[in-house]
Computed example of a mutant assay.
Amino acid sequence: MYVQGKSVAIIGTRGYPSYYGGFETAVRHLAPYLAEAGWSVTVYGRPGTTRPEDPGRDPRVRSRITRGVESKSLSTLSYGFTASMDAVMRRRPSVALVMNVANGFYLPLLRARGIPTLVNVDGIEWDRQKWGRAAKTMFRAGAKMTARFGDELVFDAHAIGDRWRSEFHRDGVFIPYGGTPSDLPPPPLDVTPGEYALVVARFVPENTIPEFLEAARTIARERPVVIVGSSGYGGELDDAAKQLDEEMPNVHWLGHVSDDNLLFSLLQHAGVYFHGHSVGGTNPALVQAMACGAPVIARDTVYNREVLGAKGTFVDPVPKKIAEAVLRMIGDPEAQRAARENSKQRSAAHYTWELVCERYEHALAELAGRP
């Protein structure tokens, strides 16, 4: 859809192109797609989170850096405020794509200037263990503001939409995340393709990281274990992963990986990818693992069942059960083959970036065209 004279400001990510998380991955695909379709695109970001010389940067996408407070509890709020103010006072876009309900507090500013908003509500942040009481209260208050002032909402999973309809009486559009298929050589690690267990996750309790690290001690006695991720702030889980890496030759902790080719290669050649995310919606890491054809074992949640479907393999968040399920699949070539096939089929049918970007553009164009 070519949209002449339309402009969009994307607020609530770390910038373009950034490799931090799911929002940033989505924007790396969406911003160039919109620019190609004739939109003027501005992505707001934070200092030091992008590289101007990044070869993946599309020169048609404008990056706008604002200031904020760098802290676990205030960064999203502060950068959201300065980006929203800049959009209101200087950019005046046709429409704003706002990521995260924490930025719901600033939707009245955008509305007052006649800027319609499409808000990706993300997951149910107030359910996450990593947040204290004050943060959970803030997220829920932001969700209430989003429900009141957001012109259109995006749910990345049907189960997220169910929660919003029941708790906030708001409907929205379903737009999940996409994945990029890969055909890469094995990763440059001392591991045999198809023989290692892999986890890719931010180090927070609700991602089942403590349980997986304990299970890894059992798995590593028989198979290599590759761990990708960190907390970003240090702490007990990072220390535990480092200790495993130092004590057990079969454990490889890589920390945060921003090299897509390395990450996709790890996923493509894994014997098992364990996905332990328990809250949120359609998880970008899971969708990307599926696009790479990884054999997935996922924590049993309504979100993971929605994405993997009836043929998925699920496990309770218990270290012994995780270890048993991982070792059983790695040792069973037929189970691996079936899991890989399920990943590829589900990815191609429901979770492609073309489909995702198409839906975002349609929703943005409808909002931009409203009187």
Rank of each mutant, 00 (worst) to 15 (best):
I65F: 13
R202K: 14
E167Y: 06
S73G: 02
R148Y: 00
F203E: 03
A37W: 03
P176H: 00
R165N: 15
Y303S: 11
V3T: 14
P319C: 11
A339G: 05
I124D: 06
E206Y: 09
V228E: 01
A96L: 12
R60Y: 04
E53V: 07
A241G: 11
N342W: 08
D190Q: 13
S63L: 13
H252L: 05
P59F: 02
H169Y: 05
L153N: 02
D127N: 13
A241C: 11
S166T: 10
H277C: 06
A87G: 03
A323C: 11
P55C: 00
I322Y: 10
R359K: 15
Y351S: 06
K321G: 03
T66C: 05
R140V: 02
V154C: 04
K72C: 01
V318W: 04
F203N: 07
R359S: 05
G235Y: 09
K320D: 15
A216L: 02
H256W: 11
R299H: 12
T25Q: 15
I297F: 10
P47I: 02
S18D: 11
H256K: 14
T313F: 05
Y106Q: 05
Q345T: 14
Y177D: 03
P224V: 00
L110V: 05
L118D: 01
Q4G: 13
G142A: 02
W131Y: 15
V199F: 01
R337D: 14
D190H: 09
L74V: 08
A285F: 00
A323Y: 09
A9E: 12
R67T: 12
C357W: 00
A31G: 11
E247D: 14
Y233F: 12
E366G: 13
V225A: 00
I209G: 02
Q336M: 13
P317V: 07
V101Q: 12
I11L: 12
I219Q: 04
R170E: 09
E324V: 10
P186I: 01
L97P: 02
I209A: 02
V121F: 05
E246I: 03
L74S: 10
A285R: 08
I330A: 02
L213V: 09
D259E: 14
I175P: 04
L77S: 11
G48I: 07
P181K: 03
G12P: 01
